[in-house]
Computed example of a mutant assay.
Amino acid sequence: MNKRNPYRKFQGQQDLIRNLEKTSSRFKRVYDEYALMSEELWNLETTEGEGLPDDFINSIILQTSYLEEEIEDWLSAPVSDQEK
């Protein structure tokens, strides 16, 4: 089984994230998309090769930040609201 590395931004909240992934399919989808986009963004920014248009990279940064904000909202919500 391929173990997913926790993303540094949410390193201290991995227990809560695992719980939310078990109880909310929406949170799991958002977090999985965030993880994928964060990894892809890191790869794009650190890999040498063909230059990509700034607009493309900026759009990935923007989408990743939207997902990050949604995850932060879930993580800061009271426990009773997290199961919605």
Rank of each mutant, 00 (worst) to 15 (best):
E68A: 13
R29Y: 15
I61F: 09
W74N: 02
D54S: 08
D32H: 15
L62T: 08
D73C: 05
E68R: 14
E33Y: 08
Y31E: 00
V30F: 01
Q63F: 11
M1V: 09
V30E: 00
L20Y: 09
W42L: 11
I60G: 05
N58G: 03
K3C: 03
E48I: 07
E83T: 06
Y31H: 06
K84F: 14
Y34N: 02
Q14A: 10
T23W: 15
Q11V: 11
M37C: 03
L75V: 05
Q82G: 03
N5P: 06
E39N: 10
P53K: 15
S24R: 11
K84T: 03
F56S: 08
S59I: 07
T64M: 05
E72M: 07
I57F: 08
A77M: 13
K28T: 06
R18E: 15
E83K: 14
K9R: 15
N2C: 06
E40S: 09
T47H: 00
R8Q: 09
S24C: 08
K22D: 13
Y7D: 06
E45C: 02
D15P: 05
G49N: 02
G51P: 01
M1E: 02
K84P: 02
E83L: 12
G49D: 00
E69F: 06
S76Q: 14
N5Y: 10
D73G: 04
Y34D: 00
I61Y: 11
D55G: 12
